[in-house]
Nucleic acid binder design. Structure first.
Length: 776
DNA sequence: TGGTAAGTAACCAAG
DNA sequence: TTACTTACCA
């Protein structure tokens, strides 16, 4: 036996050697599952002499697929590129591009993202004359997504709705939406999976050809699969039965997008002869970190019993900081990182800052910027979802697919051509009345009497598109894109604006052009539609580069599957994490999902975990007072090193921040709107020079060092204890939360801490002086 | 009829 | 705090 496999532990070996028949690998966090998967592929090829062509590995992100690909290449060498390593979505696109015409679609379909979906559905809701308050696109879209994830057709939904009026309306919307997609020659993300399943069920010989090809199938992050994905892999593997899934029920955190945890909990039911192997040895984290994670996750019921253990050192205790507010928390994090890097104890790339919601990134970003710490924010808005990028892509989409109404509507008046909402509506009505696509209607503009003067402008637009389309074959993709920019005058308009924001947008467009060029030179047979497809399927995490030296900021969701020597887990407050909604839901399952998320966060850390929370925090414009997260309390106290924030950054924080930069709530924030880095969108990464200039730009902003901020310990901090006229048991009224009962009053150093059980808003802990409670 | 200013609702997480 | 709708003016 090749010594490659000798480095594996017994359980890992068992998983690698079990090649025939269904196999469920329950792989705890950091237990080396990717290693097992790659070695398993190597083993199949080298020892079992399976043709690489017969092996498929499915992951959830392109990044994970790329990594697996590299690792397999490294172990196996020649032939490995034949292994099909892919995400669910790209695998389905590849299958559909080839065969979707068999079930009545066109092979050159486009892929709609969330934004496109919303636009499409919004229109449909309007056309059905429904109250847009009652039927919001996002919630209807959520329902439709659920239907598709469960493989429910419009017929199924109608059937289910029966005499439920609202449900029937939603079924109608679903039906209209599917029709509209088809008319636009488009599929949404969920369709990619569902339609592939439909293809396989309706066209057995297509299915069989894939079954014969894909004799060994492996699925990573199996706990995140939904019913449609499960159906897909079940179909594919049903002939040869060599399905190996790897997952961890404790890390199932995507219920909200349809992940069905029963896929993993009941795997043995679906595959009675399945072998189950548990990987419980963790190679990633210190004992303390692991114990913290175990302490938390053991509070969940209904999980497969397992306990992660480790041979690693005990390591440091978990640091726990309490901060006055979100700014102080961010300051602490930035300061700690800076000190440790300056001392040469670590590199910036050793750090990740994790949070529950994307909104938290702003404050952190601000503080990192001030301290010249290079960072990268993952998430928020994907590069390809930014307005200007989507606009240009829309032009390309129209050129590739004239039936794409959404793209047409998006840019028909961008840049301004004097074609207003009314004209567009009239054109759309005309198109709808005649069963045409919008673009075809536009071509007829001269013959639509209602359009009057707008007709000429519309013709100019269609002429522009027709010209571009005509040149398409003569030009490279890059040239075509340049041509679009030039002919539409898009960049020219932005350039004329000459604001920071407009210039940022131009930069993004330049970046798009280089991505086009990059794609073109890196592909044998580049095509516009393939480029658009790639663009539709990239995720934020895909462009995380481990080799660059920057601190990474991201949500816990994005962090799944990654690891970092040092992790900051911030915003650990009830109401933020676990989220307000999950607490309100009064449903233990929701809290359990949040708890799993917390488990994922903790287990990202290899050596050092720092948890922090703030006494008060600005959230969508108002200050909130939250108590420490219940999850923190579930970590065994003896491995927690509890510190007050001032211990850590006493000098740095109190002297510079309070006075100069407004560490207090309210001040400082206002400065963020204008500095140089504010190109619209999410991904920013700073080299030192950019930092410096951004810093300068920021320093100029009057908001910083505002005179209104009284010398240190202004009124924000030295609160005279309010004379309170209520006591425990009294009924009180709060401006926002309404009426409630006082549960507890604690005498704090600066103020009274009052716990109130509100009748509708739930339990809140607040400072008496801020809460301004009125006795009833 | 199209563009702009004030007013209002929203925010969890993502391929 | 921000993104988007409604009301209003040219």
């Amino acid at each position: 036996m090749n010594q490659t496999y000798e480095s594996l532990n017994e359980m890992q070996k068992a998983a690698v050697y079990h090649t025939e028949g269904p196999l469920l690998i329950l792989a705890g966090a950091g237990s080396g599952k990717t290693r097992v998967l790659t070695h398993r592929i190597a083993y199949l090829i080298e020892e079992k002499k399976v043709q690489p062509y017969h092996i498929m590995a499915i992951t959830f992100t392109n990044k994970a697929a790329g990594e697996m690909r590299n690792r397999v290449n490294r172990i196996v060498g020649f032939g490995a590129e034949q292994v099909w390593v892919s995400t669910f979505h790209s695998a389905c696109v590849r299958i559909l591009r080839r065969y979707i015409d068999r079930i009545g679609y066109s092979n050159d379909f486009v892929i709609y993202d969330m934004d496109d979906q919303k636009r499409l559905l919004k229109d449909i809701i309007k056309r059905r004359n429904l109250d847009t308050k009652m039927y919001k696109e996002s919630s209807v879209l959520g329902k439709i997504s659920d239907f598709k994830n469960k493989l429910m057709t419009t017929g199924d939904v109608h059937m289910m709705a029966q005499q439920d009026f609202r449900q029937a309306q939603i079924a109608n919307l679903y039906e209209d939406y599917q029709q509209a997609l088809k008319k636009n020659n488009a599929l949404d993300f969920d369709d990619l999976i569902m339609v592939t399943v439909q293809l396989f069920t309706q066209e057995p010989e297509v299915l069989e050809s894939y079954q014969d090809r894909l004799q060994y199938i492996m699925v990573d992050e199996y706990q995140d699969t939904n019913a449609a994905q499960f159906a897909l892999i079940r179909l594919l593997s049903s002939k040869h039965q060599n399905l190996c899934v790897v997952g961890d029920d404790d890390q199932s955190i995507y219920k909200f997008r349809g992940a069905d945890i029963t896929n993993i909990l009941q795997f043995e039911k679906y595959f009675p002869n399945a072998r189950v192997i548990k990987l419980e040895q963790n190679y990633r984290s210190t004992k303390n970190i692991l114990n913290a994670a175990n302490g938390v996750i053991h509070h969940n019921m209904g999980r497969k019993d397992k306990t992660l253990w480790s041979d690693n050192d005990e390591g440091n205790k978990i640091d726990l900081y309490q901060a006055e507010d979100g700014y102080a928390e961010a300051e602490m994090i930035a300061q700690t990182i800076k000190e440790e890097v300056d001392f040469g104890r670590a590199d910036y790339s050793d750090y990740a800052i994790l949070y529950r919601t994307n909104a938290q990134s702003r404050t952190l970003e601000e503080k990192l910027l001030m301290k010249n710490i290079p960072y990268k924010i993952i998430g928020g808005q994907n590069f390809y979802q930014r307005k200007e990028v989507k606009d240009i892509l829309a032009y390309l989409r129209i050129i590739a697919n004239a039936t794409d109404d959404i793209a047409v509507e998006r840019v028909i008046n961008v840049p301004r051509r004097g074609i207003g909402a009314t004209s567009i509506t009239r054109a759309k009505d005309f198109a709808a009345a005649n069963g045409m696509n919008l673009y075809d209607a536009l071509l007829e503009a001269e013959n639509i009497p209602e359009l009057k003067r707008a007709a000429a402008k519309i013709s100019q637009f269609t002429q522009l598109i027709e010209d571009l389309r005509e040149e398409m074959d003569r030009l490279s993709l890059k040239e075509l894109t340049d041509k679009v920019l030039e002919e539409t005058g898009y960049v020219a308009e932005l350039a004329a604006e000459n604001t920071d924001e407009a210039n940022g947008r131009i930069e993004n467009i330049d970046e798009l052009v280089s991505k086009v060029a990059e794609y073109e030179s890196g592909t044998d047979t580049p095509s516009l539609s393939e480029f658009l497809e790639e663009v539709a399927l990239v995720s934020e995490i895909d462009n995380l580069d481990e080799d660059s030296s920057y601190v990474v900021l991201m949500t816990i969701h994005s962090a799944k599957g990654l690891e970092f020597p040092n992790v900051f887990l911030c915003g650990m407050e009830d109401g933020l994490f676990p989220g307000y909604l999950s607490i309100m839901a009064d449903n233990e399952e929701e809290i359990e999902e949040e708890r799993r998320l917390c488990y994922v966060a903790i287990t990202r850390a290899m050596k050092h975990l720092t948890i922090s929370y703030a006494k008060r925090r600005m959230l969508r414009g108002e200050t909130q007072y939250n108590i420490i997260s219940r999850f923190v309390k579930e970590i065994p106290a003896e491995i927690v090193n509890s510190k007050n924030i001032t211990d850590r950054v006493a000098a740095g924080y109190e002297k510079t921040s309070f006075r100069g930069f407004g560490g207090s709530a309210g001040v400082g924030r206002s400065g963020s709107a204008g500095f140089g880095e504010r190109k619209p969108g999410g991904n920013r990464q700073f080299a030192t020079d950019e930092h410096r200039s951004a810093f300068k730009a920021m320093a100029k902003k009057p908001a910083y060092g505002m005179p209104s901020q009284k010398p240190a310990f202004g009124k924000e901090f030295t609160v005279t204890k309010a004379a309170i006229d209520y006591s425990v048991g009294d009924r009180v009224k709060h401006m926002k939360f309404g009426t409630g009962t006082v549960l507890n009053i604690e005498d704090g150093p600066r103020d009274y801490q009052v716990t109130v059980q509100f009748d509708s808003a739930g339990r809140k802990v607040m400072m008496a002086s801020f809460a301004k409670l009125k006795k009833l």
